[in-house]
Write a protein that binds this DNA or RNA. Structure first.
Lengths: 232, 232
DNA sequence: GTCTATAAGCAGATAGAC
DNA sequence: GTCTATCTGCTTATAGAC
């Protein structure tokens, strides 16, 4: 006998809003649609959120917080000073980021953000502000710090500007598979969701990246091999 | 005395549609807005294009064709076989791609596409089909071929799958500056439009990329230096 | 080919009963 | 807090005069 517990209206709204905004984009979704899918009344949106724009911002920040706790992005938090450890941690980081971004149930948030963020400053400066700080604070910034500390160990004499570009190169290579997914699938006839494809991408990407940072091949190969054994 | 030639209605519509779709995204723009900005009657949209969706597709493909003729992406078309030449051409290619993508008047097309393409398959499969083939055929595919031929010369023994990933890494690093522009500017407090910033990005990116491909540092440095002298 | 006028419907938001 | 009913304005698309 299942006791079907009713999901609170506010949560139900955020949930259905998340699905619909990801699927269609902000402007293309109506509040009626959201309320219907949530199985609640249209008026509750005004009651709980005040406006469609507020519902959107609350939905996005909730998605952002729920899914992104840097979990699995590294194996150990202790101080790392040896290059071998840093190289290994970098591999774990890149693998996690790539899989996290491409995970179908995982990070639609990114796709959603990318879509909305470009038009937002002109249309709704307040929403833009809220979105940008949510992404930067809750997602990008912690990953940026983590990558910076690893790169600084691996390339101790690199100047700070170059380190920034290296970090952006690493993130850019990974997020390419989210932002360009429809084009990659058409051009290469592959499924970006497929685990096998992503594993191979990660291996090659890591090799490319670590050589790009100027690391010797032995260190690179060893770190990659070791990182494949980490359970995710 | 200027003779103010009237722009044909159809062209005027495509032009104002391009501006507005880039700025706000498909769903957030109304046909009235487009007609008003073009200084023509609302009815002409139905007359010339039949529907808003058709206007959108025609607008995008027109943008795509007009701006992207692989111009400046390479210096010479002749057969290249020496590694030095290929390395040099790769540098020119990456610089051009980066500047082309970030050019404010240049490639809003990319931003526009990225925004619309993710929701399109669910909402309007026909439009999705038209958009994807336009981008892949007119933009991605030629650049993919060009990069492949260069990478094949630079890394003659690489297996084809890895070459694909290398190509995607290069494009991903460049397009990161379009897709993540608002976040980069917030996080780093820089202007992605600034020429100086992009020049430095290009230098570092090229160094990183060519080392990632396994090229020796002397070849890399020489190719980068030479490519800086190419006028754009 | 371009105009005006208008149709038919949906948008977000509100008021007030319960 | 949740419901129904409704307001106001804007949406795309059409019909028909010129």
């Amino acid at each position: 006998m299942n006791i079907a517990e009713k999901i609170p209206t506010k949560e139900a709204l955020i949930e259905s809003a998340a699905e619909l905004f990801v699927e269609k984009g902000y402007a293309a979704v109506s509040t009626r649609e959201i309320a219907d899918r949530a199985g609640v009344n249209l008026g509750s949106i005004q009651y709980h959120f005040g406006s469609k724009a507020n519902l959107f911002v609350e939905t996005v920040t909730s998605m952002m917080r729920r899914r992104h706790e840097l979990k699995n992005y590294f194996v150990q938090c202790q101080d790392i000073s040896r290059k071998e450890d840093a190289a290994f941690e970098l591999c774990v980081f890149v693998r996690s980021l790539l899989f996290d971004l491409c995970n179908p149930e995982g990070l639609d948030v990114c796709r959603l953000m990318h879509r909305e963020i470009h038009g937002a400053p002109a249309q709704d400066p307040e929403m833009f502000e809220a979105l940008v700080s949510s992404v930067v604070n809750d997602f990008i910034s912690p990953r940026d710090s983590r990558l910076r500390s690893l790169v600084n160990i691996l390339v101790p004499d690199a100047d700070p500007f170059k380190v920034n570009i290296y970090i952006q190169a690493i993130i850019g290579q990974c997020s390419f598979y989210v932002t360009h997914r429809p084009f990659i699938e058409r051009l290469r006839d592959v499924s970006v969701n497929s685990r096998e494809y992503l594993e191979e991408v990660a291996d090659t990407l890591l090799d490319f990246t670590m050589r790009g940072l100027g690391l010797e091949q032995a260190l690179v190969s060893q770190a990659i091999a070791k990182s494949k054994e980490v359970k995710r």
